[in-house]
Simulated scan of single mutants.
Amino acid sequence: MIRTKHVASLLVLGALAAFANTAAAAECSATVESNDAMQFNTKALTVPKSCKTFTVTLKHVGQLPVTAMGHNFVLGKTADIAGITADGMKAGAAANYVKAGDARVVAASKLIGGGGSTTVAIPVGKLKAGEAYTYVCTFPGHSSIMRGTLTVK
């Protein structure tokens, strides 16, 4: 009898731990959708400082090809976004419109077209609470519309 109660307690504790791990993983990830109308469906992301890595899945729910309506997810300090975007345009499509080795870029995804998806890992240790961060699409002409804020809490 005591053994059965002990096993049942262990099962309950195991289920609670699995639930806690799933909840923690959910807090450390987000999905952002983009479309053929040059829009992100999410204008703000909050990253818990307890996360080691924050993962963003970018989904392109449109139908246009990457050459016509490609989207990416590029994160940097808000003050650096104009420079990141300008240098990304110079880098071109082959570089996903992100300058190689750009230290201002905290994280960047590859460029995707309609129906595609990609994932980008943001190292939370590189982010500072209280700093203003912006994410944009650096495809030419998109960054003025396709943008959002990222906050660490």
Rank of each mutant, 00 (worst) to 15 (best):
A103P: 01
A100F: 10
A94D: 14
G114M: 08
R104D: 15
G101E: 12
P123A: 06
A108T: 08
K90H: 00
A91I: 04
A95F: 02
N96G: 08
V105Y: 11
M89A: 01
G88F: 03
V98A: 10
S109I: 09
A107K: 04
V106S: 02
L111K: 13
G115N: 10
V124S: 03
K110M: 13
A93H: 11
P123L: 06
M89K: 03
V98E: 09
G92W: 04
I112Q: 13
Y97P: 01
S109Y: 09
A95G: 00
G88T: 05
I112E: 12
K110I: 12
M89T: 03
R104V: 14
V106P: 02
A95L: 01
A121F: 01
T118G: 10
V106L: 12
G92A: 05
K90Y: 00
A93T: 10
G114A: 10
K110N: 13
R104E: 15
V120N: 09
A107Y: 04
L111R: 12
L111S: 08
A121L: 05
R104P: 15
K99R: 14
A121D: 14
K99N: 06
A91V: 03
K99D: 03
S117H: 11
S109M: 12
S109Q: 13
A91L: 02
K90M: 04
R104T: 15
T119S: 12
A93F: 12
A93Y: 10
G114W: 11
Y97W: 00
S117I: 03
A95S: 14
A95T: 03
V106C: 02
K99P: 04
S109V: 13
A121V: 02
K99A: 14
A91W: 05
V106F: 04
G116W: 03
A91M: 04
T118E: 10
T118F: 10
V98W: 05
